[in-house]
Design a protein around this nucleic acid. Structure first.
Lengths: 217, 217
DNA sequence: GTTTCACATGTAGCATGTTACTCACTTGGA
DNA sequence: TCCAAGTGAGTAACATGCTACATGTGAAAC
């Protein structure tokens, strides 16, 4: 059968299902502690069970979901030790990343410009209290910076780790109040990098991670 | 533990297929530049195409294989920039890892003992010129050490990065001659860690990665 | 009241049928 | 000889049928 309204849709269904479900998980549209079946998602997406199952298996491997045999799939609940594992990895990756970024010659000015633009939008979202938008822009801000290093595996990895931290299991509320404290921190980081001050950039990143861990404990 | 004694074998077929194909890839039993079909593996393993396809998709996500739409699957060819990405990540992860390892109190003596045992076997394999055995023990040696840190995500990640480096695309020969130069390096690393000398351990790890990158260029 | 057990329900898991695509090869015309 | 359209084999990709299993429920046995 034809592809409906899409002129050319060259992307596999399981990829599309993967993107959709992943977004839903991160946006919090999926209930924790609730079992979801392949059939449910297949019905929602209007495709058969096969590509949906494939997508779910990828998400399990990525650590966003867990699988209960013959029961269904559910959002992974992070424990405290999961969190420290993730934060520990982020320390190893993101601190050297911003250091290197601040030392690059020539400086990746286009990435800086884009990060600056994202920061502006970020502040806007913080003012409006638009939590989801804030999270999305926060993610893009950091991935833009890390991406300027040109290491695609690093960029992807950092993204995955950040995504995992959006999972429930740890208290995630009260962040609404932190929206405005986070803003200046982003700007300070960007400024330090643009000033080619690796030490300051690293220190900001480190304190950010420290505080994140403390907050979620 | 050993599933020989296990009465019922309750592991999903796609997991078993995943393990099997991954081993085959790393052991070099799979020809590079050759397209393999789901059907081929399914026939070899004596199962249907579904779990095999699921396994292959996981391996694609992991970066060991690539997928040619409507053509088949093949081993991923690493380019020079792939290699530098991987080495760069390994630097960020493995150097801090051995540093931390050397600073741990109490020291993880059981892991040290196991690493020492693996080192002995490693030397034995090097003497015999058993290349595959050497690679397998080398992998276990490093993962045992990293595993002692207790960060399961880190351990898994390091393992995946090392696996990717076993892929062809870069000259991998002449390593036979290096088998004996690698041996002492392993011992030096282990000794530095056991001596609680983070700086020395880090230096050894760093030079190892530098040399690895230079060799493969 | 408590335990046991048969059964109904819904699911993952696997097998298999079907479709549509890619590409090597052939064929025919200039 | 060259090139272009045609075609056929093989494949991923998707849909669907079927099986085994985990679990909740309720009646029967104690």
């Amino acid at each position: 059968m034809g592809n409906g309204t899409q002129l050319i849709r060259q992307e596999n269904l399981h990829i599309q299902a993967y993107e959709y479900i992943k977004s839903a998980v991160i946006a919090g549209e999926i209930e924790p502690d609730t079992l979801y079946s392949v059939h449910q998602f297949a019905t929602i997406l209007g495709v058969s069970r096969t590509p949906v199952r494939e997508a779910l298996l990828l998400l399990v491997q990525e650590g966003l979901l867990t699988m209960d045999r013959n029961r269904g799939f559910r959002i992974r609940q992070l424990t405290g030790s999961d969190l420290s594992e993730i934060i520990s990895l982020r320390r190893m990756l993101e601190i050297p990343a911003v250091e290197t970024l601040a030392s690059m010659t020539p400086a990746p000015v286009t990435a800086f410009a884009e990060a600056r633009m994202l920061y502006d939008k970020l502040q806007e979202a913080a003012d409006k209290g638009d939590f989801l938008q804030f999270l999305s822009l926060d993610r893009r801000f950091h991935l833009t910076l890390v991406g300027a290093l040109g290491n695609s595996r690093l960029t992807r990895l950092v993204g995955e780790l950040r995504d995992q931290m959006q999972l429930p299991g740890i208290r995630r509320l009260s962040i609404s109040g932190e929206l405005h404290t986070q803003g200046p921190e982003h700007l300070a980081l960007l400024t330090a990098i643009q000033d080619a001050d690796p030490g300051r950039a690293a220190a900001i990143m480190k304190s950010h991670l420290d505080r994140t861990q403390a907050d979620w404990a």
